[in-house]
């Protein structure tokens, strides 16, 4: 419980840091702390695999690309330098959409089913009446086939959630192809070796003396 409180505070603090930091790199560092705290939170929920993947994928790959881009493109500029805040006009619709999304998400969470057939943790706490219908999940971290283990995770991914999994992969593939098309700028022009400018041979400056 104490671990959870510490992690929750760290998560919220770092999330606020991400949004409020003036410097984009500070935002990234705060986001890094956020991801790390989230990974530890997964660990406390015995989601060993998920925690590791969270760090490998998000911290190790995606976030570092943020740093890469920020470092390359004018790292010194802060949010204030970008001109007047143009968010004001769309503030009302943003709030409405955000609230709607929250409601939908909460509804989905309440009614989601986990692969073993019971409701999610949230449902059991919010609707105590359902609690007896949920099969008890025995959490034994570190054993093969347990909840949150790689075997369990893989089985769910490739049986119950095969279609969403493949669809996600497909969507990512489209994104990759799109990037290649945008960045490539048409077919690559291959120059033959003959067309290349010949490398000038250095002239012989000195004749050997006899």
């Amino acid at each position: 419980m104490l671990v959870f409180v510490i992690l929750a505070v760290a998560l919220i603090a770092s999330a606020i840091g991400v949004v409020s930091a003036k410097n984009p790199v500070h935002s990234v560092v705060a986001l890094l702390a956020n991801f790390a705290a989230l990974a530890v939170l997964y660990l406390t929920l015995s989601g060993e695999f998920l925690a590791m993947i969270q760090i490998i994928v998000y911290s190790g790959a995606i976030l570092i690309l943020f740093v890469f881009v920020i470092a390359l493109l004018g790292a010194g500029t802060s949010v204030g330098d970008l001109g007047p805040n143009r968010l004001g006009k769309v503030l009302t619709p943003t709030v409405i959409v955000g609230a709607l999304a929250l409601v939908v998400l909460g509804y989905a969470l309440l009614h989601a089913q986990n692969p073993s057939g019971g409701g999610m943790l949230g449902a059991a706490t919010v609707l105590p009446g359902l609690a007896n219908q949920i099969p008890a999940v025995t959490i034994t971290p570190g054993t093969e086939g347990a909840f949150g283990s790689i075997a369990d995770f893989g089985r769910a991914l490739f049986t119950t959630y095969l279609l969403p999994f493949e669809l996600t992969a497909f969507v990512l593939l489209i994104a990759v192809i799109g990037v290649v098309v945008l960045a490539g700028g048409g077919a690559p022009e291959r120059r033959k070796a003959a067309e290349r400018e010949p490398i000038a041979k250095p002239e012989r400056r000195m004749e050997p003396t006899r």
Partner: peptide, 12 residues
């Protein structure tokens, strides 16, 4: 996985 996760953070 843990080792790879941690070493991937080293680039920061």
């Amino acid at each position: 996985l843990f080792v790879f996760a941690i070493t991937s953070m080293g680039v920061y």
